[in-house]
């Protein structure tokens, strides 16, 4: 299991990296953490002609505070796990991170690399979808922002053009009175999820559900947001029945692909169970938030 030959380009600045990508297009791939790319190269499932190593570009790394949280694409999971801003403002990210492989992988793996890889079983794309994050896509000629919902196209397919790099992720703050929850079922800790769900519940001043997001990983060709299920809860008081009905709606909207370890039916079933549980927990956390604010 040795990778095929490739040409290695070391990019020390973003401009260098984007120039190289403009020149080589689809022939070239960016090497960030490499924790998804290198295994596929070792299996020779991927044989890129050129790798552009962006690891030296310090400007691409880090968590920046503002009206929203901005995360450089090269920020490693390890840094996100340790970041107080993430823990305080986006606890759902913090809750999901330990599900991503193991510490050795999280020491190298980057958020941007993961999102650009767009594995539908991966946790982060679903969370970005739930959080309404935006992706900054830059090329030598262009600089644009794309919503998570438009970024993830299909399995291993994103809105990135051949000359573009995902450079930054913008995560808007949740309104007060928000509770979140991430849950997944994997065969072993650290494995890709057979089904995973990110639930976000925001309570209005009246204590009713004012906003609900419900995104799944592992159960579709791309991270999936259950619109009807989330909508069904708006204005409700977060009863067990309402969450059960929302879970039913989510299951009805899903058409899971099945995998070697889980039939489509089991995946759909898991999605329903997890949706109900995650919504319940998110709602309870939101309620605690509201009490704390008062």
């Amino acid at each position: 299991m040795k990778p095929a030959s490739f040409k290695y380009i070391l990019a020390r600045t973003l401009d260098d990296a984007l120039a190289a990508k403009t020149e080589h297009g689809d022939e070239a791939r960016f090497l960030a953490g490499g924790q998804s790319l290198v295994p596929t190269m070792n299996f020779r499932l991927a044989q890129p002609a050129i790798l552009i190593d962006i690891n030296p570009i310090a400007a691409l790394s880090g968590v920046r505070d503002g009206a929203s949280i901005r995360i450089g694409a090269l920020t490693r999971y390890r840094m996100l796990e340790a970041d107080p801003l993430i823990a305080a403002r986006q606890p759902i990210l913090r809750e999901a991170l330990p599900h991503i492989a193991h510490p050795q992988i999280r020491n190298r793996g980057t958020l941007g690399g993961n999102l650009a890889h767009a594995d539908p079983a991966s946790e982060m794309p679903a969370i970005m979808l739930a959080l309404g994050a935006r992706m900054r896509l830059q090329s030598a000629a262009n600089d644009r922002w794309v919503d998570a919902n438009d970024f993830f196209v299909s399995a291993m397919e994103t809105a990135l053009r051949p000359d573009e790099m995902l450079t930054e992720i913008d995560i808007p703050d949740s309104p007060p009175g928000t509770g979140t929850c991430f849950m997944e079922v994997a065969r072993r800790q650290g494995d890709f999820a057979q089904a995973g769900v990110a639930a976000i519940v925001t309570l209005g001043a009246d204590g009713k559900c004012g906003g609900v997001r419900l995104a799944f990983c592992g159960v579709a060709e791309r991270p999936f947001h259950a619109d009807a299920a989330a909508q069904s809860l708006i204005g409700g008081d977060g009863s067990d029945d309402s969450f059960r009905q929302a879970a039913e709606l989510a299951m009805a909207a899903l058409n899971p692909p099945g995998s070697t370890h889980a039939s489509a039916g089991y995946q759909r079933h898991l999605a329903g169970v997890l949706a109900r549980r995650a919504l319940t927990t998110a709602h309870a956390r939101a309620t605690t938030e509201v009490r704390r604010d008062h």
Partner: peptide
Amino acid sequence: LSPARLWELTQ
């Protein structure tokens, strides 16, 4: 056995 298989058997 596996979780998926147990679910199938209950179905």
